[in-house]
């Protein structure tokens, strides 16, 4: 497939950004827990996707491809940050906000705080399953891991999440 280079092509890709931008932003946000970082990751995801369009196989859903790049970028970011700024087990920062406030309800904040206490690999599976309603097979395809691993991480992630919620006094 030829890389899209004409203004019309960019406009076409603009429609892709419009359609999937919010979902990709939410994947990144739920994994990295930072509004600005999620913005950067979303932008990186779309620019990388656009630059690699010549490698895109049109027989596959472009959304899965976007997910793949977004998740990869987010996990890398989260792991790098966890190496450089270790978090205390009993403390996870609340989401940062900007003027364009990310409006979250109380439940959203609680679940996000709990999410940040579990390892990124487990967190990602939980996010893709619960926030994006991906099946085991779809998650396996996005993460390039076996379905068995998806289930194992999902079930363990839920257990860790429940423990975290209980620890903070919020019983699910």
């Amino acid at each position: 497939m030829k890389k899209m280079t004409s203004p019309m092509d960019r406009e076409t890709f603009g429609a892709v950004v419009h359609r999937y931008g919010k979902a990709i932003f939410n994947v990144a946000y739920r994994i990295v827990n930072d509004y600005e970082d999620a913005m950067d990751i979303t932008q990186t995801t779309f620019t990388k996707t656009y630059e690699r369009l010549d490698r895109y196989d049109p027989s596959h859903n472009i959304f899965n491809w976007l997910y793949k790049i977004a998740v990869h970028e987010s996990i890398n970011f989260a792991k790098h940050r966890s190496r450089t700024v270790p978090l205390d087990d009993d403390f996870a920062p609340a989401p940062e906000t900007t003027d364009e406030t990310c409006i979250q309800n109380e439940t959203s904040k609680r679940i996000q705080t709990a999410l940040m206490t579990i390892p990124p690999d487990y967190r990602t599976v939980v996010v893709l399953r619960h926030f994006h309603d991906l099946s085991y097979a779809e998650i396996a395809a996005v993460l390039d891991i076996p379905e068995k691993t998806v289930k194992s991480r999902l079930f363990s992630g839920r257990r860790m999440l429940r423990d975290s919620l209980l620890k903070t006094g919020y019983a699910p």
Binding site: G21, F25, N26, Y35, M39, E100, I103, N105, S108
Partner: peptide, 23 residues
């Protein structure tokens, strides 16, 4: 709880910023 949490709204300028970055 996940269902109740819903989506986080990205900034309204996000799409334009992405398109600008690509250009």
């Amino acid at each position: 709880m996940f269902t109740e949490a819903g989506d986080v709204k990205p900034p309204a300028s996000m799409e334009a910023k992405i398109i600008d970055a690509i250009a």
